[in-house]
Amino acid sequence: MTDPLALDPVLPLTERSALPFNDEQLDHDERYRHFEEHVTGGGKVESTDWMPDEYRTAVLRFVEMHANSELMGVLPEREWIMRAPTLRRKLALTAKVQDEVGHAQLLYRVAEDLGKPREAMIQDLLAGKTKFHNVFHYPTKSWADIGIIAWLVDAAAIVAQQALRDSSYAPYARTMKKICWEESVHIMHGRDVVLTMATGTADQRASIQEALDRWWGPLMQMHGPRSDRAKDRDLHWRIKAKTSEELRQEFLGIYVPRIREIGLTLPDPDLALDPATGVWGYGEPDWNELRTVVTNHGPKSQERLDFRRANWDATQWVRDAILSAPRAAVA
């Protein structure tokens, strides 16, 4: 072993001093400039790095909404776990919803390390102060919805999530790799449910088509209205890589042919690929509906929040008991 004293100062555990923005000697504006240069140049940020408040807040807001969406996204499908029509579907759906809870856990952990406690995030969600994705504000009316959600809602989500695997915030990027892998199984489960019904009885086919018609509007709204790339701070900080329209085009490009090839139709007469530009045209999504829904005025917003709140309150005693329980003796 080399003489340890010769190595002083060793690379500290909590800061990567090689990165200039971690240098405490510099003033804030200089650190900010170094940080911006690092991130916009494709550099990664770890939770222990120094970061400007604007970046920390932006990542936290983004990850927190993602975590909230996973947690609230559990509820529409959860209602059908008890109704799954075969043992294998029951297992697959339980496993899928379990994964969503697991994703919420992973994402809240990422957010917690940015400085906001999990309890505070859950309380803000329950109080309606923070948001969750539009698609989780709608009712699930039939087993066919379970297929459409697992196939297409998850597909629309995975298109966005794949683009996040390269996020500048490295703990988030790593988490997205794990999540994308798990989501890919959900899509297969969903597509299998849809295919089984599409090749089943006339009533089953009608039920799948009806579910698709109902979910198409929210799916088209899901990635959000077109935005100006230059003005999007999340893009600037490379928290995300693609605009909402890029994500929607990607989703349409992959899934419209897959939907149509199995004999299902889409309820948008303007939906068409322009062969010259390779761009999908579509009827303008109802952005007013999106705004209404994500501000918790959707058809199931309040019911789902009430349900989540009631269950959180009903299990408070368990959390209290575990947190106050004497710790097992440490060796």
Binding site: L195, I262, L264
Partner: peptide, 24 residues
């Protein structure tokens, strides 16, 4: 899903996905 997909395509009169097909 290979068999189900083949059955669905046959049922809808398509032989393979047509990524560049326009509106219905």
């Amino acid at each position: 899903m290979r068999d189900k997909l083949a059955a669905a395509r046959e049922q809808s009169g398509e032989s393979k996905p047509r990524a560049n097909k326009g509106a219905r």
